[in-house]
Write a protein that binds this DNA or RNA. Structure first.
Length: 678
DNA sequence: ATACATACC
DNA sequence: CACTGGTATGTAT
């Protein structure tokens, strides 16, 4: 099942060389945008021509230059990873092979074929709705959106290569006859509600994604009525058409991740059923391109293909040793589960919105009066949206996109919760002020850390998950259940308020319940529960806060700490567990640093024994970190004003050190590990 | 906690 | 002329 070793690299190397040769002759081939990937209804499109037009229209623009910059980073990342790949010894590979095989067995054991999931996706939704209200559009190429951006295009337009997320002016070049229709969310929401009434007949707890898609657990309907899933899908689609006059496509599969893939197969106005059978699933994923999987986008596809030669889901398993060597456990778990065709099967708990934001693009300016005005308008829009939902939060994030398309975010977390436009503006101004002078083309404001968000332990579903996990000790179940729903609601309207609260949807994700997030939640909880003066301390006194509601935080942390050493969870968890004693002893005895020959006992990072220099540097890093901590704790409290300078100095040193490490080391988690910042 | 990046529609 | 907007989440510091 598992392919070992060096062959892999040879293959990719050849592919790379070939790609390079053609690049000079046909430069457009290297310019990849999200909308040049084929979508349903675009099979007959002359992709070469589309790419050329897109390239010609973009070439030289500020946007294009920024894309080139990003592409260059990714290329470098890939190159570095390939070098690291080549540096792995046979012993390293054997080790990671074992790790991978064990994970795959565990993931396989978690497979659940008992549920039947249906994913329903409206066909060219916005465009179809607009055609309903204006039938003269029927049969003509048409797109919803503006000259700067399209939301969707109908199938006639797609024949020309016109696609959602494509700028309108490029679309017009591809299809001069293209009719532009402005977006009208009220209309889409109205029709969306009609479709959801139909969905509710089959699963009252269906998960609404955006306006045009939903996940239904049809296990019960199939059983109660003794009908095949195929017939349910057929009937549901007919029902939607009856109620709305709109067509949709459906996918049926044992889990949500696969159901989503399936709904795309016979689009438009079609359906595909993948039976609840292990062999059927394995066959299905064996040839499935990884890009079809929700959560694997342009960048991840490039990396997996460029570094490991992975194109299909099956190859995720074939290259699992490399995957386990180079990615965090949660990421590796996700990739491996993709190879196994696993996905979420549970009926999701209720989740709440975590942030609310508002942003606007305008012609780039550095006029501070103008920028201030934009900021004021945003603060008012955001505040209005927040009042509508009764939200207030304590973290405010300012987002800026410079004239050169570089994105910056600046955030503050406040003592008190804010929601008024005055409060928002007051703090937003300060954030903006610090960035001036600057020429920007977009400003955005986001508020998060809501009042009553994570504070109330009872209503927090993740809390329950952790508790269940700890008490049951069931590792597999938790590790293998990935939220696979793409959640997006690019509407900010009142109509969907209910659905925001009731829908589930995690997003992509290669995250499992016990990587950093969950622990952060616990930590955070202990902080906020007892925050009274805004002085938040993470410490053992948090027991007081948690013991009241359940068995106690120490138990959670204790268990985690155990797992942290045994399983190596991830760097972040490991560093949470840092203790000076351990640090001391480990720095004194470097031989003790590497557990099992691979794992750093301090942070959990894995580094093969053959990476001698890297290991030394890694030890130095911990030493530097320790020194930095000591420095800042000495200076911070006694002389606050000086401590900042001191701390900055130390931070900078340590940062450059880490960057150096980043380029050479890189055994473990990060996709971005070799990402060299300028 | 903050910054940045990726992903989804 | 000219490349969105809203939300979630992963990774690193």
């Amino acid at each position: 099942m598992i392919v070992k070793g060096a062959r892999v690299l040879d293959g990719s190397a050849n592919a790379m060389m070939k790609g390079k040769g053609t690049e000079d002759d046909r430069p457009w081939q290297s310019y990849h945008t999200v909308y040049t990937t084929a979508k349903a209804g675009m099979e007959l499109v002359d992709k070469e021509k589309v790419q050329r037009v897109v390239y010609e229209m973009s070439k030289g623009s500020k946007y294009f230059q920024n894309e080139e910059r990003k592409e260059a980073f990714i290329k470098q990342k890939i190159d570095n990873l390939r070098i690291q790949c080549a540096n792995l010894t046979q012993e390293d590979l054997a080790h990671y092979q074992k790790v991978a095989d064990r994970r795959i067995v565990e993931l396989e054991a978690s497979r659940d074929l008992s549920r039947i999931w249906l994913h329903v996706d409206m066909d060219a939704f916005y465009a179809a709705v607009e055609t309903l209200s204006n039938p003269t559009l029927k049969g003509k190429p048409m797109a919803v959106g503006s000259m700067s951006m399209l939301s969707t295009a109908n199938y006639e337009a797609r024949k020309f290569g016109v696609r959602a997320a494509m700028p309108g002016f490029i679309a017009r070049k591809l299809c001069p006859e293209l009719i532009f229709v402005p977006t009208d969310f009220k209309k889409y929401t109205y029709y969306s509600d009609l479709t959801r009434k139909v969905f509710g007949r089959y699963d009252p707890n269906f998960i609404a994604g955006s306006l045009d898609e939903a996940y239904l657990d049809i296990t019960e309907v199939c059983r109660e009525r003794n009908v095949k899933s195929e017939e349910i899908a057929q009937e549901l689609r007919a029902g939607v058409y009856e109620e709305t006059g709109l067509t949709c496509s459906a996918g049926v599969a044992p889990n949500r991740l696969l159901a989503k893939v399936c709904s795309d197969i016979n689009k438009p106005n079609g359906q595909y059923v993948l039976p609840n059978d292990r062999m059927a699933v394995m066959t299905f994923v064996s040839s499935l391109p990884i890009r079809k999987i929700g959560g694997i986008g342009k960048v991840t596809e490039h990396i997996l293909k460029g570094v490991f030669g992975i194109n299909t889901c099956e190859q995720m398993l074939e290259k699992s040793s490399y995957i386990c060597a180079f990615f965090s456990q949660s990421t590796a778990d996700f990739f491996c589960s993709v190879g196994l065709g696993l996905g979420q099967t549970d009926s999701p708990q209720v989740r709440f919105r975590k942030s609310i934001s508002s942003e606007r693009t305008f012609s780039a300016t550095k006029d501070e009066v103008l920028l201030h005005k934009k900021l004021e308008e945003l603060a008012e829009m955001l505040s209005a949206d927040m009042q509508k939902e009764g939200l207030s939060g304590r973290t405010l994030t300012l987002k800026l996109k410079t004239a050169s398309f570089e994105v910056r975010t600046r955030a503050v977390t406040l003592q008190k919760y804010i929601s008024s436009s005055e409060d928002i503006l007051k703090h937003a101004k300060k954030l903006l002020q610090a960035e001036l002078p600057i020429s920007v083309r977009l400003i955005g404001l986001r508020v998060s850390q809501f009042n009553g968000d994570k504070c109330s332990a009872k209503s927090d579903p993740t809390q329950k998950t952790i508790t269940n996990f700890i008490t049951s000790g069931d590792v597999n179940r938790n590790c293998s259940s990935f939220p696979d729903v793409a959640d997006h609601d690019f509407v900010s309207n009142a109509e969907t308020d209910m659905s925001i609260d009731s829908r589930q949807t995690g997003q992509l994700d290669w995250r499992d319940p016990f990587d950093g997030n969950y622990l952060s939640d616990v930590d955070y909880q202990s902080c906020t529960v007892q925050k009274s003066d805004g002085v938040e301390e993470v410490q053992t006194s948090s027991n007081d806060a948690t013991s009241s509601h359940y068995s106690g935080l120490t138990e959670v942390l204790g268990s985690t700490s155990y797992l942290g050493q045994v399983e190596g969870i991830n760097v972040k968890n490991g560093s949470n567990l840092l203790e000076d004693e351990r640090l001391d002893s480990c720095c004194q005895e470097k031989t003790m640093l590497w557990l099992n020959d691979y794992k750093c006992s301090l942070c959990g990072i894995e580094l093969p024994p053959s990476f001698v220099e890297e290991r030394l540097e890694h030890s130095d890093f911990h030493l530097a970190e320790k020194l930095q901590k000591e420095e800042s704790s000495i200076h911070q409290k006694s002389v606050p004003s000086q401590s900042k300078g001191q701390k900055d100095g130390v931070t900078r040193q340590s940062k450059s050190k880490k960057q150096k490490l980043s380029q050479k080391e890189g055994s473990y988690t990060p996709i971005d590990y070799f990402f060299v910042k300028k």
